[in-house]
Write a protein that binds this DNA or RNA. Sequence first.
DNA 1: ACCTGAACACCGTTCAAGT
DNA 2: ACCTGAACACCGTTCAAGT
Lengths: 214, 214
Amino acid sequence: MSSDRAPRNTLSRDRVVAAAVALADTDGLPSLTIRALATALAVKPMAIYHHVRNKEALLDALVDHVFSQVRVCRADAEWRQELGARAASLRAALNRHPWALTLMEARKNPGPATLANHEAALDLLRTSGFSLAATAHAYAVVDAFVYGFALQEAMLDQVELAEAPGDLIEGIDMSALPRMAEFATQHVMRPGYSFGDSFEVGLGMVLDGIAALA
Amino acid sequence: MSSDRAPRNTLSRDRVVAAAVALADTDGLPSLTIRALATALAVKPMAIYHHVRNKEALLDALVDHVFSQVRVCRADAEWRQELGARAASLRAALNRHPWALTLMEARKNPGPATLANHEAALDLLRTSGFSLAATAHAYAVVDAFVYGFALQEAMLDQVELAEAPGDLIEGIDMSALPRMAEFATQHVMRPGYSFGDSFEVGLGMVLDGIAALA
DNA sequence: ACCTGAACACCGTTCAAGT
DNA sequence: ACCTGAACACCGTTCAAGT
């Protein structure tokens, strides 16, 4: 007699956001539809709207969820160590949730975790004696590097995903691209190579540059 | 008697791509639908598919179109000047077409202009005497910085777009974010401030770091 | 060869209705 | 208060058909 409807009060904003993150992680952002999300939560599509205003608000929450995983700087420690650790933590979070970069570009409303994270980073730099101008440059430059590095890692994952099993890059005339060919065969395909190793190198350059701003 | 159908042979792959770029530039990426694109070209939706395999292939073409606007490095000039000029050109192209960053992350097939641009940059660095390892680091780091900086500029544009006319940031408790408040009032809102000024600063840091790799 | 019409399996979202 | 059903205005894309 009773319907198969989900029991009441099982849904919450947090459960909706967590399920959305899981869906985007496993199946990719395009698969994150309100309807698929409802199915994953064993609920009808319209139930979602009782906990989230609309899809845009859901995406805002997803980005803030990612930022909630990023290390918050403490202002009473050495700035170089703190800023570097936050950068590594941000990169790791963006690697875990590659769709976050795509979303960030179009977000209009930064969430509380995002704001708190930025506040702490600014506080660290200011407390460490950087002027407002130096703080602005420093923060813009580290974050640019981290976002861009994570973006490149996401792009590399896509290209590798598309590669034909035997052939390195399908249908591309490598003879017209001798430097890329050299690079692939003599460097990238060698045993110890890892793109990620450039992260510490670049981060070091940026932190050195910031130190010179002080 | 005659129908209002568009005359034949007016459509071409280039016209389709150009119209798609224009649509994304003016109305944003979400507005770029096959159906809207067809309308803009005064044609029925299915006509598009005669010049582009599917929407995914169209997006691939859009990204390559953007890369075709980026300065190609020449290997016979001073590397620092050449790499810096390419970086500035890449940033400018990404500013003109902010949707390109979003698309790049999910592309599986780099186009010919993209590949040629990378080839020239690698050739410049190798010709200038950088080892394969140093070239890998150098290229990863400059591009990370440029992509990330452009991403931040795109994010800033979104936030500014959403701001209530009078109020700086709507509904955010600035008293809990004293450093952001200080930053906004004492720095960002001052006459000469421009976020973009951090680009040259960061680029300088990165190029200095790369010089130290040689 | 190039373009179209009709159809299919999807979307996000509103609105009125159930409990 | 919380969830649902039906409906609306959209999507990308296939397939058969026109010229």
